[in-house]
Structures are given as C-alpha cells and as structure tokens.
Amino acid sequence: MSDALLRLDHVTRRFGGLVAVNDVSFSVDEGEIVGLIGPNGAGKTTVVDLVTGVQRPQGGEIFLDGGRVTALPAHRRSRMGMARTFQVVRPFAHLPVRDNVVVGALYGHGRAPMREARRLADEVLEMVGLAHRAASPAITLTVADRKRLELARALATRPRLLLLDEAMAGLNATEVDEAMEVIRRVHASGVTLVVIEHVMRAIMGLCRRVLVLEAGRLIADGGPETVARDPEVIRAYLGQRWAERQEAGRD
C-alpha cells in the first residue's frame, strides 16, 4: 500500500481552555480535491496552520508522503511541497503584482534563482488569469483579483499539496464560476488540493469528498451529496434555508 500524500493522526490543538482542533484524523491521497467545511470557529484555518507548520499540535502526528513532519518548521514543509493561501489576504500593497509572485517563487519548494522565479511568476499569473495586471500595484486590484494573486503566490512555490483557505470569499456567482475553472486547471496540472470554503456551490462543484469540522471535531467525511443531506451537517452548518433550497432545486 502506498502512503497518502497527507495524513493527520489524532491531531489536537488547544488555545487555553479552548480545544480548537480535537483529536482529528484524516488523510488525503495524491490527486484528490477534498473540501473542508464547518461553522465559523470550527477549526478549519487552525488545521491549515497545523499542516503547514505555522502552529504545532499539542497531540498527534502529521505525515507528508509517509514522512513525519509534525515538528518541522513551515519553510521546510514549504520546500517539501506544501503551500497555502491565507483567508485574510495581505499582499505587498505597493509592489507590482508580478513582484508579489516572484517573492513566492524565490522562497518556495522550487527555490528558483531570480531569472527562473520571474519565468515561473509569469507562468502562474497566466494560469490564474492575472497576466494582464502583472505590472499594477497590488493595492489597485479588486477583491476577486486579490484572491487570484494570493493563489498565484502559493502556486509559485510549485506545491504538490495546496490548501486554499476561503479563496472565493467575496466573489459573486459569475466570479465563483471563473475561480472554479482556475482551480480545476491547477488540479489538472497535478496539484492535490484541500479547499476550505463557505461558498457551497464551489464545494459541491469541485470536490468528490468533503470533510466537516464542528467545534474542533470531524463530524462527517463523504461525498458532497451525502454530506449535504446529513442532518447533523444541516443542523451545524448548512442551515434549514439552504436545505430547503436544495429540495426546491431538485424538483
């Protein structure tokens, strides 16, 4: 049996009395797109922090490709092929878009020399559909384009595993469709994805498998249709209005 690309084994993270991530175990195989959903404060961003090494768990282990990474610093994990986007995007506001991405390329997995970093930056800007804004200062980007920039910065590290933390927040339906296209392209280029999103349309459309966290615990793991009909998930996360709309939509 080959190892999963990512595996969490009984991972726990506390903040004082609060157990933000509580004995969580799951694995992600190479080539998957897995959704991670759950109510506000459920622990989703904390899971991303733990996986990428921004934070350490108090209990449990994390494996990349079967190798233990639990105690490795974030930059080591980045070089091993892990990348993430941040929920609250903070680009270097006055640097051009392209330079923002070059910085990512210089530090990541590939650790490319400058010339290579520039070429890589142009390539990922093309992939996310931001090539035409390459020379603009990041501050002049719209929310949708800022999200694309954040994705490009992560891609410039040439990740094998990419965790997207609400990459579509603040986009309208049309823009969500466009973002889904970009994410499919990224996936097709060989990147394994974990997608955190409150935009359910995107989760349902992108993921074959969805994990649900509530109050730090994993409460569901299954196909999107099954998960969306799970009464626990409806109670804790989706809400009655969403469930009713789905029903109406099926008729």
């Binding site: 759950g38 506000n40 609400e166 804790a236 989706l238 809400g239």
Partner: peptide
C-alpha cells in the same frame, strides 16, 4: 466569510 447558518 460567514457559514450558511451564520448568514441565516
């Protein structure tokens, strides 16, 4: 950034 239940 709000969960569907929180939007409701």
């Amino acid at each position: 950034g709000l969960a569907p239940v929180a939007v409701d």
